[in-house]
């Protein structure tokens, strides 16, 4: 049963082996069920937007993928590493996972005591074993890519919210991840600043990066992503090619949600 829901989309988008696969992933906090029976598979280069009302479990789903929030049931497979719920992942498994997956948070979470350059270089040195010179050189390229090379020596507090989020994207890219997770990357930004973040994300998507984006930006979901997943009450209520889902949702719950967000 877990294969049924995902096999359609896999056939649609990519015949090859999925880069990331979730099988029956669930998460409960005490007796409170936050996620239930999530199946999802993602092919290389695919961009998936996850939308849905607040509290529907979107962010928890992202956090379960990179084990910031260990799932209580199910399996997460990335490449040939599988992490089963219920047993604590080994250091090696976690390392594979964290290196393959970059994450961008709603509240940026840059390290305030480090310069912008050090923020981007730190993990390259500590995790990838690059020297400081190598790491800084890569960081400068990444900062240039998000248009912020001139901020390298500043501290994050001297940058605008939009700039901070772009730096956070550069920091996540520094480990050459195969997948990027975005947890409402523009929700803490005013619309204008959000735009500069969205345009960086759009460039990433066009460059072939595999991405999962939890977002309230409906236009981004419709135009940039290949696939849209609508969640409600901890479940996937509808998913499919973005144009179809956004314009012609089939389930009542999805219709209700899209109706509500489009009406404003």
């Amino acid at each position: 049963m877990s294969l049924n829901s995902s096999s359609i989309t896999q056939a649609d988008v990519a015949p090859k082996q999925p880069l990331l696969r979730l099988d029956a992933v669930g998460k409960t906090f005490g007796t409170h069920v936050v996620l239930e029976d999530i199946d999802l598979s993602l092919a290389a280069g695919e961009v998936v937007a996850i939308i849905g009302p607040s509290g529907s479990g979107k962010s928890t789903l992202l956090r379960c993928i990179n084990q910031l929030e260990p799932p209580t049931t199910g399996r997460v497979t990335i490449g040939d590493t599988t992490i089963e719920a219920g047993h604590t992942p080994t250091r090696r498994e976690l390392m594979v996972l964290r290196r393959s997956i970059g994450m961008v948070f709603q509240s940026f979470n840059l390290f305030p005591h480090l310069t912008v350059l050090r923020n981007v270089s730190l993990a390259q040195e500590r995790v990838m074993g690059r020297t400081r010179e190598q790491a800084d050189a890569v960081s400068m390229q990444l900062l240039a890519r998000v248009g912020l090379a001139d901020k390298a020596q500043q501290f994050p507090s001297r940058c605008s919210g939009g700039q901070q989020q772009r730096i956070a994207i550069a920091r996540a890219l520094a480990l050459d991840p195969q997948i990027m997770l975005f947890d409402e990357p523009t929700s803490a930004l005013d619309p204008e600043l959000g735009l500069e973040v969205l345009s960086v994300m759009r460039e990433l998507a066009e460059g072939g990066m595999t991405m999962i984006v939890v977002t309230h930006e409906m236009r981004f979901a419709e135009n940039v992503s290949d696939r849209v997943i609508i969640m409600a009450d901890g479940r996937i209520v509808e998913q499919g090619p973005s144009g179809t889902v956004m314009r012609n949702p089939q389930t009542e719950r999805a219709q209700r949600f899209l109706h509500a967000v489009k009406d404003r």
């Binding site: 910031l68 390392m95 964290r98 948070f105 509240s107 730190l122 500590r126 995790v127 920091r171």
Partner: peptide, 12 residues
């Protein structure tokens, strides 16, 4: 969020 960011970029 600082701890989570550190974990997410793979720091032990």
């Amino acid at each position: 969020g600082q701890k989570e960011a550190a974990e997410a970029i793979g720091l032990n």
